[in-house]
Design a protein around this nucleic acid. Structure first.
Lengths: 224, 224
DNA sequence: TATTACATGTCGACC
DNA sequence: GGTCGACGTGTAATA
C-alpha cells in the first residue's frame, strides 16, 4: 500500500465529471491497484476513487509536476496532478484474512426456514427464495388451512420491506394454484410506520429475537 | 489525519457483530474523529469503520498492547488491539474545498424539462418538481388531449423508481383538476423487472440517451 | 429528529 | 457480463 500526502488537483471523468481544486489530501494506492483520494473528514468515503482493475501511468506535467493518470476499460479516467508532495511511503501489508460477520439477514432467513413455526404455529415451509418474475420471495409457506403464506424477512423492518412484500403478493395472486395469499412481515424490529403500512395492507407483523432464535439447540431445529 | 500501519485485531459490535483476525492493516483517523481500517485491497471501502461523532479511548491491554476503543452514542463499539505498530504518522491537511460534480440526475431532469417532446411528441411542461404532500414529482406535463402526465426521471430505472411514481400518481389522482393522470417512467436504462412492474401499473417506459440529449445545441432547447 | 431519495454507491449471488 | 437485492449502506435535503 502506497500512501502519499500531497497538495494536488484531481479530475474524474466517467460515470460523471468531477473536479477537486488544489488542496492537501491523502492519495492511497492499494496492492490491487485501486486508488482513493481522502480528505481529512467525511467518514470513510473518499472524495474520488478508481476501483481495480485499472492502469496507473506516472508522468510529468508541462511545468514538471508529477501527474498520475488512472484509467480502466470502461471509459473512466482519474487524473491526479501533484503540486507538492509532503510525504510518500509504501508498506507491505500482505493478504488479509478478511472479516467474519454474524447476524445478517441471510442467517435470520435460514434459521426461520428451519423453524417457520416461530412465525406461526401452523406454518409449513414450501420453499426458500421462491421465485417470481419480479424477484424471489424469502419464504413461501402453507398454513393449516392450506392457504399460501408469503413471508418477507428483514433485519430491520422498514417501509421498503412492506412494499416489497406487497409486490410479491400481487404477483403470487395471479397464480390460481396459490391464491389466496397471506402476507407476514418478519424482522428483529419493525418501525411504527412500517407496522401501520403492513396493517393497511392486511399483513401480519412478527418481531423476532435473533439471539433467542440462534440459541435454540440443533435438536430443536426441524431440518427440511 | 493520523495513519497507523500495524498488526492488529479488530472487533465491532453494533448493527452486527464482526471480528478481524490479526493481520497488518492501515488504521486511518480523520480530523473529524472517524476511524477506518483498510486492508491492501478491496476498493475504497474499509474492512471496519466508525463514523463521527464518536469517542476514541487509548489504553493498554493486560499484556501491554495498545488498545483503542471507539464508541458512539448509538451503542456501537469498535475495539482495535495493536499487536505491533510498524508506522504511526500524523499530517495536517486542512479543510477541503470539496468536490464539484456534474452529470447526475438533476441535469438529466433539467434537459428533459427543456425538451419534454423527447419523452412524448405532444407533451407540454406544466412544471418541474411539482409539489405533492409526499414529495415533489420530477416533471408534470399535459398531453395533446389535456390529460395530466406525471414523469419520474432516473439515471437508472429500477423497481424503487416505479414505486415512487405510483405513490405520486395516487396523490395527484386525489386532485379533480388533474385527474386522470398518466405515468411515464424515464431513465437512461430500465431493468426488465422495473419494466414488468411499470407495465402492471399502466405506466409507459422511455429510455433516454443522455449523451444525445446533452449534445442538442442550445437553439434546439425550448426554454420554459 | 425522523423520513425520503440519491449514490461514480459497493458488494455478492445468481443467471 | 448483466441483473437484482442487501448493506453496519452513507449522505444530503426536507419536514
Amino acid at each position: 500500500m502506497r500512501l502519499v500526502i500531497a497538495r494536488c488537483t484531481v479530475d474524474y471523468e466517467g460515470r460523471l465529471t468531477a473536479r477537486l481544486p488544489s488542496a492537501v489530501r491523502l492519495v492511497m494506492v492499494k496492492a490491487d491497484g485501486c486508488v482513493a483520494i481522502h480528505a481529512d473528514g467525511g467518514a470513510y468515503k473518499p472524495l474520488n476513487w478508481m476501483v481495480a482493475p485499472n492502469i496507473l501511468v506516472e508522468a510529468r506535467d508541462d511545468d514538471g509536476s508529477p501527474t498520475w493518470t488512472v484509467s480502466n476499460g470502461k471509459g473512466e479516467r482519474l487524473v491526479i496532478r501533484f503540486d507538492e508532495v509532503l510525504s510518500d511511503s509504501s508498506h507491505e501489508l500482505g493478504t488479509d484474512p478478511g472479516l467474519e460477520k454474524d447476524g445478517v439477514e441471510a442467517e435470520l432467513q435460514a434459521l426461520l426456514a428451519a423453524r417457520p413455526d416461530v412465525i406461526g404455529d401452523d406454518l409449513v415451509l414450501v420453499r426458500r427464495e421462491y421465485p417470481t418474475d419480479i424477484g424471489p420471495i424469502d419464504l413461501l409457506c402453507r398454513d393449516g388451512s392450506g392457504a399460501t403464506v408469503a413471508i418477507e424477512v428483514k433485519r430491520r423492518g422498514e417501509i421498503d420491506g412492506v412494499e416489497q412484500l406487497t409486490r410479491y403478493i400481487a404477483r403470487l395472486e395471479l397464480d390460481p394454484g396459490l391464491r389466496p395469499v397471506r402476507g407476514v412481515f418478519v424482522a428483529q424490529s419493525i418501525t411504527p410506520q412500517a407496522k401501520v403500512l403492513a396493517g393497511d395492507r392486511g399483513f401480519r407483523c412478527v418481531e423476532i429475537d435473533y439471539e433467542v432464535l440462534k440459541g435454540m439447540r440443533p435438536e430443536d431445529l426441524r431440518l427440511f
